[in-house]
Design a protein around this nucleic acid. Structure first.
Lengths: 133, 133
DNA sequence: GGGGTAACCTACTTTCGGGTAAGTACTTGT
DNA sequence: ACAAGTACTTACCCGAAAGTAGGTTACCCC
C-alpha cells in the first residue's frame, strides 16, 4: 500500500503562511534578484529611465522595464511621464518604497562587513549611503 | 546598416558591479524567494530538519533541502549531523547568518507597517521578534 | 516481521525568468 | 536625408528553478 505524499496542499498553505511570517510578505513584494537593486538605485532620488539603465549595466532592457512595471503595480514606486517627444519618464519611490530604506541600509551594512572578511582589499564605507529626499 | 545591441557584455558587467553595489552582493548570497525565509526560521535558534519543514509547509522537501545545502555551502548556516538511526540533523546560523538579524528585523518592521496599512485586520507586533542566542 | 520514523535522494515534467536581438514613434541636430 | 536619442515593445529561445511522486536506509517497537 503506497501512501500518498502530503505535499499536494502547498498552494493552499502558501496563502495561510502570509499571515504568519513577515518575511514571506516581504518576499512577495520585493523578492527576486533585481527588485532590491532597482530600489537601491532610486533611494538617492528620482531618476529617469535612462539613468537607471546606465546605473545598472548588468540588467537587460526587457527585464528592467518588467521590474519597473511590477514595482509600480506593487505600489513601491511611482512613474511620472511627461507627454513630450522624446519621452521623458521619471521614476521615484513611493512612501512604501521609501520605507524600505532601513532594510536596504541593513543589507549594505552586512555586505560591507562580509566582503571585508572575505577580501580585505574590497574595503568600502557607508558614509555616503543614500538617505531619503 | 543594422547596429548591434550593446547588451552582449552583460555577463562581464555583472562581475564588475559586485564591487560597486552592496545590494548586488547581498542578492548573490541570500537572493531568491526562500533563503531569507529559511534564515528567519533559524533566527530563534538551531532547529532540526523536521522542525524547519513543519515550520514552512509552503515549501517542498526537495526545494527545502536544496536551499539548506546552498546556504550551508555559502557559509550562512551550519549543519550538524549525529550519526544515529534514525538520523538527527540540526541546522544553526553561522556567524555570517547571525549577522543578518538586523536585515531580517528591518524587513519584519516594514512588513508589519505595510500590512497594517493594507488591511488593518492583520495587525501584528514585533515584541517577540527573535533575538540571537 | 510489518509498520513507523528521520533525513534525505532521484527521476520526470512543467513553469518561469531571463538573455538576445531587433523593431517602433517621433523629434532634434547636421 | 540621415543619424541619434528616448522609452519602450515584440519574438524567440534557453536553462534554471520548482513541483510531483516515488524510493532508500537502518533501527526500534509490538
Amino acid at each position: 500500500m503506497t501512501r500518498i505524499k502530503e505535499a499536494s496542499t502547498i498552494q493552499e498553505n502558501k496563502k495561510l503562511v502570509f499571515q504568519e511570517c513577515p518575511i514571506t510578505y516581504v518576499m512577495e513584494r520585493i523578492g527576486g534578484y533585481w527588485k532590491p537593486i532597482v530600489l537601491f538605485n532610486l533611494l538617492s532620488g528620482a531618476k529617469r529611465y535612462g539613468e537607471i539603465r546606465r546605473a545598472m549595466p548588468q540588467i537587460t532592457e526587457k527585464v528592467l522595464i518588467q521590474q519597473l512595471k511590477q514595482l509600480e503595480a506593487d505600489g513601491l514606486l511611482l512613474r511620472e511621464a511627461k507627454p513630450v517627444i522624446p519621452p521623458h519618464v521619471v521614476y521615484r519611490l513611493s512612501e512604501s518604497g521609501k520605507a524600505l530604506q532601513p532594510v536596504l541600509y541593513a543589507m549594505a551594512v552586512w555586505a560591507v562587513a562580509e566582503s571585508e572578511q572575505n577580501s580585505p582589499l574590497a574595503r568600502k564605507d557607508l558614509s555616503q549611503f543614500p538617505a531619503i529626499e
